[in-house]
Design a protein around this nucleic acid. Sequence first.
DNA 1: ATTTATTTTTAGATAAAACTAAAACATCGA
DNA 2: TCGATGTTTTAGTTTTATCTAAAAATAAAT
Lengths: 222, 222
Amino acid sequence: MKEIFTLSEENYLKAIYHLSTEDEESVSTNALAERLQTTAASVSDMLKKLAKKELIEYKKYQGVNISEKGKRVALQIIRKHRLWEVFLVEKLSFNWDEVHEIAEQLEHIHSPILVKRLDEFLGYPKFDPHGDPIPDESGEFQAMPQMALSEMTPNQSGLLVGVKDTNSLFLRHLDKIGAYIGAKIKVLEKVEFDGSVEILLEDKKTLFISKEVASNLLITKR
Amino acid sequence: MKEIFTLSEENYLKAIYHLSTEDEESVSTNALAERLQTTAASVSDMLKKLAKKELIEYKKYQGVNISEKGKRVALQIIRKHRLWEVFLVEKLSFNWDEVHEIAEQLEHIHSPILVKRLDEFLGYPKFDPHGDPIPDESGEFQAMPQMALSEMTPNQSGLLVGVKDTNSLFLRHLDKIGAYIGAKIKVLEKVEFDGSVEILLEDKKTLFISKEVASNLLITKR
DNA sequence: ATTTATTTTTAGATAAAACTAAAACATCGA
DNA sequence: TCGATGTTTTAGTTTTATCTAAAAATAAAT
């Protein structure tokens, strides 16, 4: 007897989950309204609904925290989103900057068996094309210790494992400079003046990365 | 500037299209209500909406006919439905009796490029797992001349190219007796008494097919 | 050709998810 | 501590897609 949620409820849950992992604190109404491109009033309405279904813990004027139940639901949606992204890139040869909107739709397809079969078809991937971990059926995922490129010091090196921003313009910029998930990156020098970083990419090519870009690249050591 | 339709509108259009190809005449409100498991009142409401968008031709109390525009939209949804069914069966190893409900959801994903890539990935299939033709991007499809097995006469033979009913129980019965799309079938004898048919399947095995089953199997000669 | 039965449409309500405007609450600075 | 400011909630609408009950139109039957 699997409980079914509406498109809206699913999108709210996902947003609440993401915002609560970004900040440690409870999520504010305004932050949600901003994220979901809607008004605080609409958010308020929906929060009452989600609280009644025990998907969130909510006290008026105090912001929300996602409940265990809510987290389970959110992680399954995220699982589907990321699996579909892998499918689109690996099987349908989409570029990694083109898959987000389509996956936003596909993530709401309800069929546990479909997800299972898709996972199998894709060879049980652990990360999506942007380097984000894919939760398993019980919501567990591997979180590697990672840091932003902008926080590394000269002579440290590691692998590019993820991006913070998944904006299309940003991703295409990465394609252009030859950076991809899995690439080896070594920090050569940090420029005091503008916060940019000089790196060695794949032991082949040196280049300068702006502060903005560097802070959106996630690196794991070895 | 592609016009977007709601889930409901798409489901109505598809139902109207299917009902108008089944009967030659215009589609009645009640038939639609029955098909969509809703009330005549709801159908009446929706018909006004679809008519205003010029997706159907509608005169009060006279039933509906689908317009050219409506047909275009319906055929694209049907295209998506059937492509996804091929994907589920060919790539995710679903059985042909399991794919309908999932494809009912997937058919509403809006992304022309996705459909194109999926079609390519599947090798431009012309028929879905039940033998139904897949319309191309402009809505054209190959319609083979076909007849129900129950209408064939002894000694005629042909290939099983489709099923009328896609009910799960029926399809699993076909699996059990070894009948599949593409199988060669020769009519040996027709039994007067109960309308059943004795056939030779794949030049290997003879068996009796009930009248009910025979009338749901579509055969094309040679 | 009327009456009866069936089908279809309208009228009025409901539920979900959004909105605007206004009221209630919280917080921070003086 | 008490306003000023900003945040959040409530109240009242709107839109979409339903529904039930009743009215209107069509079709069937005597």
